Amino acid sequence: MPTQYQITLCTCPDKNTAEKIAHLLVDDKLAACVNILPGITSVYRWQEQTESAQEYLLLIKANKNSYQAIEMTIKKHHPYELPEIIAVPVESGLPEYLHWIDSCHS
């Protein structure tokens, strides 16, 4: 059964970028909640090199109908040439919490 909820993951290079994007998404009613997880280490391939960076991870909880607007907002305000934007479906959740996500949607 398809779900109407998703969590979008996005890494940011610093706290200011993470907070700015989180506030834009919540203030514009694109996301009900954005958690900012500090102190993650990302190891990745970029331009044929193995890189490592300290980043902040955004966990963006939203209705999947907001995905395109979330993606556009992140791309507009993110400093990376290729930001991580990955959405995963929410298979189940506390019904009251899922209804709350709906109530925050524009």
Rank of each mutant, 00 (worst) to 15 (best):
E48P: 09
A32E: 01
D28P: 08
N16W: 04
T8M: 04
Q4L: 12
A32Y: 06
I40M: 10
C10W: 01
Q68V: 02
E81Y: 01
K75M: 03
N35R: 08
L58S: 05
V43Y: 11
Q54G: 07
K29D: 00
L98I: 14
L98C: 07
L25G: 03
P79D: 01
P13V: 03
Y44H: 08
C10E: 03
A22T: 06
I74Q: 00
W46H: 02
L37N: 02
I7V: 15
A18V: 12
Q49S: 10
T17P: 13
I40N: 02
N16C: 11
W46E: 03
E91S: 14
I70E: 00
Q54P: 07
L37W: 05
Q6M: 14
I40A: 01
T73I: 01
I86M: 15
D27F: 04
A87I: 13
Y44V: 08
L94P: 15
H78A: 00
N35Y: 06
E55G: 08
L94A: 14
L57V: 05
E81Q: 10
Q6L: 14
L82T: 14
A31D: 03
H77K: 00
M72N: 08
T3N: 09
S92E: 15
P2D: 11
V88M: 15
V88I: 15
H99C: 05
Q49M: 13
C12S: 03
Y97D: 12
E96F: 11
Y56N: 10
L24M: 09
L9D: 02
K29S: 05
Q54A: 06
K29M: 07
G39E: 13
S66W: 03
Y67E: 02
E84G: 09
I101H: 05
I21S: 10
L59W: 09
Y67N: 02
Q68W: 01
I21G: 03
N35F: 09
A32K: 04
S66P: 12
E91M: 14
V90R: 12
D27M: 03
Y5C: 11
A53M: 12
A31V: 07
H78P: 09
S52P: 11
L24Q: 09
P38G: 00
I85L: 11
L82K: 09
M1K: 13
I101N: 08
E51Y: 05
S106N: 09
E55Y: 06
V90A: 07
P89W: 14
Y80S: 04
A87G: 15
I21A: 08
P79F: 00
D27Q: 10
E19G: 04
I86P: 14
S103D: 11
E71H: 02
E96N: 14
C104M: 11
D27C: 04
Q4F: 12
P2T: 12
P13E: 05
V34G: 01
H77F: 02
H99N: 11
C33M: 03
E55P: 15
D27W: 03
D14Y: 08
E96A: 14
V26L: 07
C33N: 07
S42M: 05
I7S: 02
P89I: 12
T17G: 07
D28V: 07
L82S: 12
K20C: 08
T11I: 08
N65Q: 10
I60P: 06
T50V: 14
E96W: 13
S106I: 13
L57C: 06
